[in-house]
Structures are given as structure tokens and as C-alpha cells.
Design a binder for these strands. Structure first.
Lengths: 341, 341
DNA sequence: AGCGGCGTTCAAAGCGCTTTGAGCATATGG
DNA sequence: CCATATGCTCAAAGCGCTTTGAACGCCGCT
């Protein structure tokens, strides 16, 4: 059933039927009711391809997800972010176009989306400190929102977590517990969030008159295996850390494995603070928080990002939206006073 | 730049330019070369909205992802499955439309996709033993492929892992090690894969003249927290299991946490076999396989599923494709002979 | 009676492509 | 030299909507 047939069956013009369905005011209420009833009865749905061509709007938002590292893995936080954003998109009538590309192919993907008009805007995630995508999208004139930000966060819209202050707070928390040898297991430090976390960590250490020790700092794609390997190596050093500060729950699980394997007890022999994105399947709260953590829901961020982006699409030429979310530090069972000695 | 302008700039008709770009034979090679060069120079990309309307094809495949459980979580395996499928889609020129819906909203999402023609086919994941989506999509006439299958797997195309035999093998492996008290930490058993795994587990136990013990069997959404809680309860029973068979690496990590917390050592005091979907960020192989596991790459499945579905879309009226993948059992460090007594 | 304004409806143009059917050369065969 | 085939190109129709601009009937006003 298409609009023409529906209009004919009602003895109305396509114009009137279209207007009735789309809520335009120049249609008599009685007529609108008739149209709505007939549409309902016939299970009429306007063809989205035709509608998109006619309106010039794609009613679609693009997410380009780059595969990270040599092993091309998908950052698991994307799933929860998408869940949050997708919910808002659905409510607002937008589709979500997902493009998963190898590292380096992202630019081509954005250019294509802009050129062939398949999306009205795009979401950028996990930017590098000096991310080239921002200049590109500005050039392409495609509305976009960045989840995270770059070193120079001016001139575009973003939503970010206060990474630096979160890791400063977490480091201070460990320092206050008496820890002096604190390790940092970070994400890839070309990514802005990781660079800021490292800065917060270093700042706290410097502020106590100490210097960060490179032996106790590692950064890589945040897998369970990386956490395990990084912590293992540090725990085999002559001078081992007494505490770990970890960038995500996933590598934190690897750290825990390395700790336990050495017969050490988390929260007693070794302390661990992690950033917790509140991943749904990695709930840190079953039976009380296992890890002491700075937390900020990635899913909540996805929702808010979607709201902002849609607003940016609907009302162009508005000032840039920039939102910074503070994190809370939840004390769990993975931290305790530094062991004597 | 649109087709009309491009054609004018070349002094050719839109017809010829369109044909040249789309590789039709009735165009002189010299002309085609001219057109291609001009298109390249102008960075011309056909407007996808117009193309879709004209061809009647959406060049898009839909994935409807239901949020599971009361907490509405996203099954983390979806990310890796999407990565695999997305790669193939991109190569074949298809877009990926992602719809994330609350449980129970899935039917509406499929109906809408079918009615408004936004997709050419859909992928179904994690079917229930008697999944209603299959009848629905058949009724809607929308091509689809099921990753997994239902109790009655006839009359539609699917790709599945041999779940029953995998868990039979895994259980026998534990039985052969002398374990007699084997627990099953399963996914939600309304899902077909979980039901089959349970059947394989039970079959192996019955075949040794024993009976499965309900106290040692739990099933729920496969989170780390669920694994932890389920294993904790079992380890606090008067008669505790000596081995755990777990449906995914994620709850297996929770089981490990519960085991370690009780001062027990995995692979010595307690054995653990898990199914490993080879999630990229949960690599079970950093430093040798931590868990003994039946494994089958979810990402590989995504790739193959995408290939099959595209083929189904391109050539309708072909016989159903049904593919069953066997798993391999990799012995890691989480299993050992049953402790004496 | 004539006029403007309002509420309602319509025919037709347009979105930017693909595809059909026709047309015009040029080549081929009888 | 005509008839037919072949290679290449074109104008125009069509995909199913939205949106513009016009038209129609009716009302109240002067």
C-alpha cells in the first residue's frame, strides 16, 4: 500500500493525505481522523526511501567504529554507548547507521557518508589528542558530536568525562592510604582520555614531591590480557607497586588475575582502583562493589550524546555544546592501607 | 555535484553517465573513461537516497538487538559479531542499520523495517527455542538469516555452533578427569543455545549412570556478577562441585573470582571449562590459554552470516542454507584431575 | 452585490537517481 | 543498394514521497 493508493481509496489527494498523516494544520479534523483510520486499517507506512529523497533528510545518524590495534578489536564500551544512543535515536525517529572500519579507513567512511547523504550527522568516539576527524567533519559540513574531546577542545561540540580530575582524585585516594608505589595501567595514550588520565595521575604524584616511575606505567589497548601481562611484569620487578590504577574494568580483571596468581590478596597486599564505565555485563556491584572505582556510565553518556547531536542537527548555527561530567569515587573491596615496609 | 550537472559538464545524457559509472556494457570504453575521470575529479558520489528510491533496494541490512533482562543489558558478544558482519557488509556495499530495542519491542521494529522498506534483509541473533521472530519474518517476506537456530530448525536458513556436542564433550572431558560433581553455569535457558548446552551436559552425565543435580545448575543473563553469585552459592553448599562448566568467558571470570576468594586454586582445587566466543578484548590466549574452553569465534560467525545473508538477498528462491560449526576443546590452565575425596 | 479572508483541498513539480524504449549512425550480409 | 544487425547515445518515465502555488467555497464585512 502506498500513498497514492491510500489517497484513492479515500477519494482524497495525496497532498491531503500526506498532510493529515504528518500533522499539518491545514487539514480538517474530521478528514484527518478518516485518513488516520484508513492508514491504520491498511497498516500503511510511508516508504522511507521516498520520504528521504523528498525531504532531503536521511533521518539517520552515523557511527563509525574503528577497529583498534593490530588485532583489530572492537572496544567493548561501544556496545553500551550504542545502547544508550540507540534508545534516544529510536524515540526521536532516527535510524542508526553503523560502519565498522579498519584503522585508517575512517576518513573514507566519513567522506562517503557526507557525499552520498546517507546520514544527517555523525558521532565521534574516543578521539585522539589531536584528532584529524574534527577538521575533516568541519570541512565536510556534517554535524557531529564528539564523545570525549581533543587537546584543544574549542570550536566544536563535545561531551566528556573529567578524566584528569578523576585520576587525580583516585591517585590521591591511594596516596592517602599510604601507597607510594602506584602503577598506572592505561589505555593507548594517543587517545585523549588516556592522556588526560595519565596527566591527572602524574599531577597527584608530583604534588606530593614524588616523581612518576616509568617502570610502573604501561599503556595499550584495554584488554583483559593486557592488564594481566602488564601487572605480571610489574609484580616481577625488584621493586613492585603496592597499588594499581587501571583505566577500565576489563584490564582490571587481568590485573586481578595476575595478583591472585602470585598468592597476593587484593585490598590487603595490593590495592586496585579502576575507572568503571558501568558496562552492563561487567556490573561492579553484584554483591557490593568489587573494585574501588571512579565511575561514569558510558550508556548514560550515549543517551546524552544522542540528545545533543539530534539537537545540533535540528538547529544548526547554534553555539557549540560542551559538557563535562564529573565522576564519583566509589570505595569497594579492592583497596586498603599500604602494607607496612 | 549531482548526476545532472556531471552529465551536462560532459555533454552527455544522464543515462550514459549513469551507465558508465555502473559498469553497463552499452557504453564505449572511451566514453566510460571520460566519465570516470570527470566523476573522480569532481568527487562525485551518487546520492544514496535517490539511488535507493530508484532501484527499490535499500542496500541495507538490519540488526535488531534486544536489551536483555530487567537491567536491559547488551549482550557483549554482539559487538564482535557486528564487527565480523560489518566488515563483509562494507565490502559488498551494504549499510548496517542497527536498532536497539527493549525486549518485546523487537516485533514492532521488524514490522516497521519491512513496511517502510528501509532494509533488504535482517539478521536474527540468539533465538529462543521457539522463537516467534521466524514466523513473523516469513510472514513479512523479508529475507533473514538466523545466527543460532530453534528447536525445530527446518524451513529457514541458519548458522549455528554445535552447542550440544560441545558441552557433551566438555562434560566428558571433566568426567574423564575424575570429576563427579560438575556444575553448569548457563545462559538463560529460554535461549536455544543454552537449552542445547544444557542437554549436552545432561546427556554426558546420564551416560555415566549419574543424574544431573539441580543444586549445581544455574542459568541467567551471562554477566560477570551472575557467574560470581552463582558459583559463590554453590561453593557454600554442603556438597560443593569440583568443576564448573560455564557458558561464556564473562561469567567464567565471575566464577574465578568466587573460587579465588575462598582461597581455592583454579586447576587444582576446582576445575573450570568455559565456552569461549573469542571476544577480542577477552583474549583467552594472552600468555597461554587461561581457561580450558570450547571455542568458536563469534566474529568469524558474523562474517560468514553476513555472506550467507547477502547471498540470500541477491538470489531469492534458493534452498535454505544451514551450517553447523563444530567447536574445538582447548585445554588451558583452569582444569586438572578431580581432587581426592 | 462585491470584496477580502479563511479554511480546506487539489494538481503538479520536484527530490536525484535508474531504466525503458526509441533513435541514429555505422557496419555487415545478401 | 537495400535490409538487418550492432554499438552507442538519448529523452522521458518512473520510484513514492513532500511541498508549492493555485483554486474553490463559504463567511462576514462594507
Amino acid at each position: 500500500m502506498n500513498l497514492k493508493q491510500l489517497a484513492e481509496s479515500l477519494n482524497l489527494s495525496q497532498t491531503t493525505v500526506s498532510r493529515a498523516l504528518n500533522g499539518y494544520p491545514e487539514v480538517r479534523e474530521e478528514t484527518r481522523a478518516r485518513v488516520l483510520a484508513a492508514a491504520q486499517a491498511a497498516n500503511y507506512q510511508p516508504n522511507s526511501r521516498a520520504r528521504r529523497l523528498a525531504t532531503g533528510r536521511a533521518m539517520t545518524i552515523g557511527h563509525v567504529i574503528p577497529l583498534a590495534g593490530k588485532t583489530e578489536m572492537v572496544n567493548p564500551i561501544f556496545a553500551d554507548f550504542l545502547a544508550g544512543a540507540g534508545e534516544v535515536y529510536a524515540n526521536e525517529g532516527y535510524d542508526l547507521l553503523l560502519s565498522i572500519v579498519s584503522d585508517g579507513e575512517a576518513e573514507r567512511a566519513y567522506r562517503q557518508m557526507a557525499a552520498n547523504g546517507s546520514v544527517d550527522g555523525v558521532m565521534i568516539q574516543s578521539p585522539e589528542t589531536d584528532d584529524t576527524r574534527i577538521a575533516l567533519l568541519r570541512e565536510l559540513g556534517l554535524p557531529f558530536l564528539v564523545h570525549g574531546r581533543t587537546q584543544n577542545p574549542d570550536g566544536y561540540s563535545w561531551l566528556d568525562v573529567a578524566n584528569k580530575s578523576a585520576f587525580r582524585k583516585a591517585t590521591n585516594f591511594l596516596l592517602d592510604l599510604g601507597h607510594r608505589r602506584i602503577a598506572l595501567i592505561n589505555g593507548q595514550e594517543n587517545l585523549d582520555f588516556a592522556a588526560r588520565r595519565r596527566a591527572g595521575y602524574a599531577e597527584a604524584i608530583w604534588s606530593r614531591g614524588m616523581a612518576p616511575n616509568p617502570d610502573w606505567m604501561r599503556a595499550d589497548v584495554m584488554t583483559e590480557g593486557f592488564g594481566y601481562v602488564a601487572a605480571s611484569k610489574m609484580l616481577d620487578l625488584a621493586e613492585t607497586p603496592t597499588a594499581f590504577l587501571v583505566s577500565s574494568v576489563i584490564p582490571a580483571i587481568g590485573v586481578r588475575r595476575a595478583v591472585v596468581e602470585r598468592g597476593l590478596v587484593l585490598g590487603r597486599d595490593i590495592s586496585l582502583v579502576t575507572h568503571d564505565d558501568v558496562l552492563s555485563y561487567m556490573n561492579n556491584d553484584a554483591d557490593g562493589p568489587a573494585f574501588t572505582a571512579t565511575r561514569s556510565s558510558i550508556r548514560g553518556a550515549g543517551q546524552r550524546c544522542a540528545e545533543i547531536l539530534i539537537d545540533l542537527i535540528r538547529k544548526p548555527n547554534q553555539p557549540h555544546v560542551q559538557e563535562l561530567w564529573e565522576t564519583e569515587l566509589t570505595v569497594g573491596r579492592s583497596t586498603g592501607p599500604a602494607p607496612a615496609g
